[in-house]
């Protein structure tokens, strides 16, 4: 099976030849090329080369067409702070509540960082065709305001100015759908819809149902391709039914959550992505790595509908390449269907 066939089978809740593995590596390509993280993201060809080298090295099942989240903050007037040892981070929030009434979505073509992402996805699609899924990324309309306004000011807005919150969801939703569709047109096969605030750990589910879920339903319906909703380390069990209602196909699960319980709640409705602990992964030895991979496969792989990945949607810079090699080896060894010990039935 090609990676694409493997992934499509599991998204159809069938067992492919083995459990697909998504190593969501946005930063490690810089190390592959001997560049700083800032140098790496400055040129499209660096990211293209980095992703292709990591695909070759680890033999995993996706290309991550994602640069960094703060590019979306830049689109709204924000800035990016680069560090030597982590993901580029958003600078001070660019918006204030009183700007929302007259706010308009940014034009993608006028944001250099976003156009670099599109160029990279075009080149990656030319390189791999339809053999490996290329994953594009958007921030959800409901979660983007954390970068736009700051989390505390966003919560103030939700509680004090629901009218402006609804308006912000409309504006962000329009931008989100346009940005997702631009990536699909450029070469991405699917969109990872990052929505950490959908998690009950972050926002009262009642508020998610009032603002976040309707925004997701409308936005995902306007995205012309498959989506996976990632809660970026947040637990999801209390909102699984809501996520199903948004029309998404898959959920990215946080490391604090019981993966088997999530799989049971999602079975046949949502595929599950997760949930290796990226923070602890920095320090795993071989035994810990194999145990983590086997544990996740044992918990969630039976019957398909599962992709092995990390819990956050981005593997930290500090995770050594040797550990990533071990994860890939262990996934191939223990993730082969039918699973060992009679596991594998739906």
């Amino acid at each position: 099976m090609t990676s694409m066939e493997r992934v499509l089978a599991t998204l159809s809740h069938r067992e492919p030849d083995r459990v697909p593995l998504f190593l969501l590596l946005s930063l490690h390509g810089a190390r592959e090329l001997g560049l700083t993280i800032e140098e790496y993201f400055a040129k499209t060809e660096h990211v293209v080369q980095g992703q292709l080298r990591m695909l070759e090295r680890y033999g995993h099942d996706c290309i991550y067409g994602f640069f960094h989240a703060s590019l979306e903050a830049e689109a709204w007037g924000g800035s990016t702070i680069f560090t030597e040892d982590g993901p580029p981070n958003a600078g001070p929030p660019p918006l204030k509540a009183d700007m929302i009434a007259s706010l308009a979505p940014p034009r993608i073509a006028e944001v250099p960082g976003l156009t670099r992402v599109l160029e990279a996805q075009r080149a990656l699609r030319r390189a791999v065709g339809d053999s490996v899924p290329i994953v594009g990324v958007v921030m959800s309309p409901f979660s983007l305001p954390v970068m736009q306004l700051g989390f505390d000011h966003y919560l103030d807005l939700i509680f004090d100015r629901p009218d402006l919150t609804h308006r912000l969801m409309e504006i962000n939703g329009a931008f989100c759908a346009e940005w997702a569709n631009a990536q699909l047109a450029a070469g991405a096969h699917a969109i990872c819809y990052f929505d950490p605030l959908a998690s009950q750990k972050m926002i009262d589910p009642a508020l998610y149902r009032r603002f976040g879920r309707p925004a997701a339903q409308k936005t995902i319906a306007a995205i012309a391709g498959p989506t996976a909703t990632h809660l970026a380390s947040g637990p999801c069990l209390q909102v699984v039914d809501d996520l199903v209602d948004t029309g998404t196909m898959m959920v990215g699960v946080g490391g604090e959550e019981d993966l088997a319980a999530v799989k049971a709640a999602c079975r046949g409705r949502l595929a599950v992505l997760g949930n290796l602990n990226g923070i602890q992964m920095r320090c795993w030895d071989e035994a810990a790595t194999v145990a983590a991979v086997r544990g996740a496969i044992d918990a969630a792989a039976a019957g398909g509908g599962f992709i092995l990945s990390d819990q956050h949607g981005e593997i930290p810079w500090q995770v050594p390449e040797a550990t990533l090699d071990l994860i890939a080896q262990a996934a191939r060894e223990y993730g082969r269907y039918p699973l060992a010990g009679g596991r594998g039935g739906p």
Binding site: D152, L155, D156, F159, K201, M202, I203, D204, P235
Partner: peptide, 17 residues
Amino acid sequence: KWDRGELSLSHVYMSGR
């Protein structure tokens, strides 16, 4: 209660505010 998953961060924030 937030730590145990019974409340959300939005509850914690608004309580503090």
